[in-house]
Design a protein around this nucleic acid. Structure first.
Length: 856
RNA sequence: GGGGGCGUAGCUCAGCGGAAGAGCGCCCGCCUUACAAGCGGGAGGUCGCAGGUUCGACACCUGCCGCCCCCACCA
């Protein structure tokens, strides 16, 4: 840890307030942590390396619940790793988010009544940088509010100088290796963003539409064929008709020529295996410039490609009389005109899948265009190997399947975007149209001499984020950071970006880092949903702002609520009440600490330092220490397996139901040194175990009660080790028996509506050993169950001299003198019910024992 | 058309081969000096349906039914 040399700025807290007030605690604590340099790591420090790179949020974005979950989980992992003495680093940063950010700024401009073109490229980019300056720090500040313990001295940005250098190097290298190429291919085009998109940036949504059947007559006037289409306007770009080679219906037409209505273009009829004879009419209109399949068919049969659309998806000059019409208007017009000619055979209503731009929702247009592509085949096969070999494993494991399936069917990745905000493609065209991909920018003289013009396009944002695991560590330089922390230990992300991001990081990491995978484990958490498991979205109006929740309930409460719901691989439902519940838990812990403080006086730190006592322990001491060990083991096991919810459950249950409800209550009766030491030892351990999940409350309490020095922090305190030998099953069994007595007596009171204040007396009949046990626990039992007089007797009736109520507990008979307190008939009824239940249980047990198989 | 997930208490979910659990909600009783952001007690489930495996199934297998995701170029 590299201290900044600043003195601790936190005041000594000798007392805890009445209730936990996150607002008073979180800000100062975080600031102190950061100043102390607790989050900073150096590659040459001691400890086994442990590293995580943050999925970089969009620079101009704001924290949403998905980020809150993702980063809470990463923080929990990093904090635990740090406490375990690993050389743990969490690398933070942001993504320049090409299209997303550009769209935001364009909207700003639009509100001022101008477009980016009015500004010009340079001024526009300047404007985006300016916007980044204004908003770029926001989300990182918000992460601090969450408690994220990132190494802020290592903050990176996908578009900063260092990362840009890496992007350039990767692009040029891949180009040299023939893995990046420029091609005239069919791509997804967004007519609103005016840019190409990769396949995964297109969302397919089922929408109702019309399947129109069009008749294309033969050139000689014969009937020709009927084809079907949902995009009638594309017929303007038709350059052929395809049928299946074995289709008897059309065999005679193959090789003949049809006439495209409206434009009177000649259309050859070709035979192609791709055509499904069973679909529609079995004849397909072929529009090579506007449909991926048709493009393939066109290629195979040498058909002409005619691009009939403008950038804005209006009909171009190639569309003859339809030129200038928007594509949807053209669709209707074409149908109407064909109808008028008697060539619109029929129209069917049909739901079909329509591609939308994932960024702006506009219907994308498949379009032929000159773009840059990554030849992903060779890269993907290495990634597939890494996953198959288990060098990179998925948690939960099942996610690997879909991931592999996707990688195996990958098309080349279109990486050029017709945007301004992003890494400029390092390619220049000379006067003859030859492409030059250059590692260094050409000099102005060179440029002038050879007539070089730079490619105007920028790279897909995901191109630079694909390099994140090694560019954050300084690549392409050979740095100590890379040496120490690459590959990263685990990647934490929602399953929704496995394709966008994880796959690309895997491919690039393996390719550029000497075949070493960028992460050993991909931990996929679920998506945050609303209380009913519905997706959160602005249009449903069911989104929750995590910052509001932090304001109201505290960061720990939000974190704990998320973690508690983060069951392995399942989606994570979140509702305000859940967060409220988590706040109560934080407060419960706070008040438990208050009580411990009260019971131990000012001796806290001194007693803690002594550790848990080994001798002179009461039963409840041995019990709680044993239960602590159980909780400790469970937490380790759960966190090792990324079962955060499991760890949260174990701690919640241990703290509330065991430590508070039983141990603290019993400790109130005692004043011996052992009990104080156990009180503190358990609290200390529990705070450590809970710290990765709830860093703020735990730190505040720990510094007050457990820390030996003002400068001590839980952030860098040691993680409790587990030791199965510390379990004391005998103590647990014995204590359970006492608890059973208390519970039964309490139930007896409640069943009979006995006033809380009223003492009840107990006459106990118990055999020797059992009697000894009960006597040992008597003080506790009486306190917790409100018993006044307790006597042991062989003949309870005589001892009481009146009606008795029997309280069933294991190994003993307890009787409560009723003294006219309750209705005897009612009591008899209640006991009959219990007897029946017991008989049924007995029968079941005997049945089992009579069964040889069971006994074996 | 493939792949996956889920159907357990009113709601959201754990459990995943040996006597049905949690949080919230609900009912009853408590200001018992750590905590009413609390304490004690309680009601409420033929664990989606039908078969099968097993001495034993909520858990394993098979088939249905119902929700929900992801992927895919059905003109």
């Amino acid at each position: 840890m590299a201290s900044k040399g600043l003195a601790p700025t936190l005041p000594a807290m000798s007392k805890l307030g009445k209730a936990y007030e996150p607002k008073d605690v979180e800000g100062p604590l975080y600031e102190w942590w950061e100043k102390q340099g607790f989050f900073h790591a150096e590659p040459d420090a001691d400890g086994q390396p442990y590293s995580i790179v943050i999925p970089p949020p969009n620079v101009t974005g704001s924290l949403h619940v998905g980020h809150a979950l993702d980063n809470t989980l990463q923080d929990a992992l990093i904090r635990r790793a740090r406490m375990r003495g690993l050389n743990a680093v969490w690398l933070p940063g942001t993504d320049h988010a090409g299209i997303a950010t550009q769209n935001v700024v364009e909207r700003q401009l639009a509100s001022e009544g101008i477009s980016r073109h009015d500004l010009g490229r340079e001024a526009f980019i300047e404007r985006v940088w300016q916007w980044r300056e204004e908003s770029g720090g926001v989300i990182l500040q918000q992460l601090r509010r969450l408690g994220a313990s990132c190494d802020w001295e290592r903050e990176a940005f996908t578009f900063d100088e260092q990362r840009s250098r890496a992007v350039r190097e990767v692009f040029v290298t891949l180009h040299e290796q023939g893995l990046i190429y420029r091609g005239y291919r069919l791509i997804n085009w967004c007519p609103r963003c005016l840019s190409a998109l990769s396949d995964i940036e297109v969302d397919h949504i089922d929408e109702p539409g019309e399947l129109a059947y069009l008749r294309y007559p033969q050139m000689d006037g014969g009937d020709g064929v009927v084809v079907a289409t949902t995009r009638a306007e594309t017929m303007l770009g038709d350059t052929g008709v395809a049928v299946h080679p074995d289709d008897e219906r059309y065999r005679h037409l193959v090789g003949t020529t049809l006439r495209l209505p409206l434009l009177d273009r000649e259309l050859p009829v070709v035979a192609d295996d791709h055509v499904d004879p069973a679909f529609g009419t079995g004849a397909v209109k072929v529009t090579p410039a506007h449909d991926p399949n048709d493009y393939e068919i066109g290629q195979r049969h040498g058909l002409e490609t005619i691009d009939i659309m403008t950038d804005e998806a209006a009909i171009s000059a190639a569309g003859g009389p339809y030129a200038g019409l928007d594509r949807f208007a053209a669709r209707e017009r074409v149908k109407a005109d064909l109808d008028a000619l008697g060539l619109l055979v029929r129209v069917e209503q049909r739901v079909h899948s329509v591609g939308h731009c994932s960024r702006c929702g506009t219907v994308v247009e498949p379009r032929l265009s000159d773009q840059w592509f990554v030849n992903v085949g060779p890269l993907a096969s290495k990634a597939i190997e890494a996953v198959r070999d288990g060098r990179t494993r998925f948690v939960p494991e099942r996610n690997a399947k879909g991931f592999l399936n996707w990688l195996e069917n990958l098309h080349d990745w279109c990486i050029s975007r017709q945007l301004w905000w992003g890494h400029r493609i390092p390619a220049w065209y000379d006067a003859e149209g030859h492409v030059h991909v250059l590692r260094e920018d050409p000099t102005p003289e060179d440029e002038a001499e050879r007539g070089l013009v730079r490619d105007p396009d920028v790279l897909d944002t995901w191109f630079s984020s694909a390099l994140w695991p090694f560019t954050t560590m300084g690549w392409p330089d050979r740095t100590p950071e890379l040496e120490t922390w690459y590959p990263t230990s685990v990647l934490v992300t929602g399953y929704d970006i496995n394709t966008f991001w994880v796959s690309r990081m895997l491919m690039m990491g393996l390719h550029f880092m000497g075949g070493v995978e960028p992460f050993g484990t991909v931990f996929n958490h679920g998506m945050v949903r609303d209380r009913h498991g519905k997706k959160m979205s602005k249009s449903f109006g069911n989104t929750i702002d995590p910052l509001d929740l932090i304001d109201e309930y505290g960061a720990d409460a939000l974190r704990f609520a998320l973690i508690r719901a983060a069951t392995l691989g399942q989606d994570v439902p979140l509702a305000e009440e859940w967060v409220e519940g988590a706040r109560r838990f934080a407060n419960k812990l706070w008040n438990a600490a208050n009580l411990v403080l009260l019971l131990t006086g000012d001796e806290g730190p001194a007693l803690t330092a002594e550790g848990p006592p080994a001798a002179g322990l009461a039963l409840e001491d041995r019990w709680i220490l044993s239960r602590l060990e159980a909780a400790r083991a469970a937490v380790d096991e759960d966190l090792d397996g990324y079962d955060f919810a499991g760890a949260a459950r174990s701690l919640y249950h241990f703290i509330w139901d065991e430590y508070c409800d039983w141990y603290l209550e019993l400790a109130k009766l005692r004043e011996d040194r052992e009990s104080k030491r156990v009180l503190l030892a358990v609290l200390d351990a529990v705070l450590r175990l809970l710290h990765p999940l709830m860093p703020f409350v735990t730190e505040e309490i720990w510094r007050t009660l457990c820390a030996a020095h003002e400068s001590d922090s839980l952030v860098v305190a040691a993680w409790p080790s587990t030791d199965p030998a510390r379990r004391d099953l005998r103590a647990e069994t014995e204590f359970d028996a006492l608890r059973d007595v208390v519970t039964e007596l309490r139930r007896f009171r409640a069943d009979h509506r006995l006033p809380t204040a009223a003492r009840i007396d107990v006459i106990a009949v118990a055999p020797g050993e059992r009697r000894t046990e009960l006597e040992a626990g008597l003080d506790g039992i009486r306190r917790l169950s409100g018993v006044g007089q307790w006597i042991f007797a062989d003949d309870p009736s005589r001892a009481a001299g009146g009606p008795l109520g029997k309280v069933p507990v294991t190994g003993a008979d307890l009787f409560v003198p009723l003294a006219g307190l309750l209705d005897l008939d009612e009591e008899r009824e209640r006991l009959t019910r219990e007897l029946d239940k017991a008989k049924a249980e007995l029968a079941r047990a005997e049945g089992k024992l009579a069964n040889a198989g069971f006994v074996d």
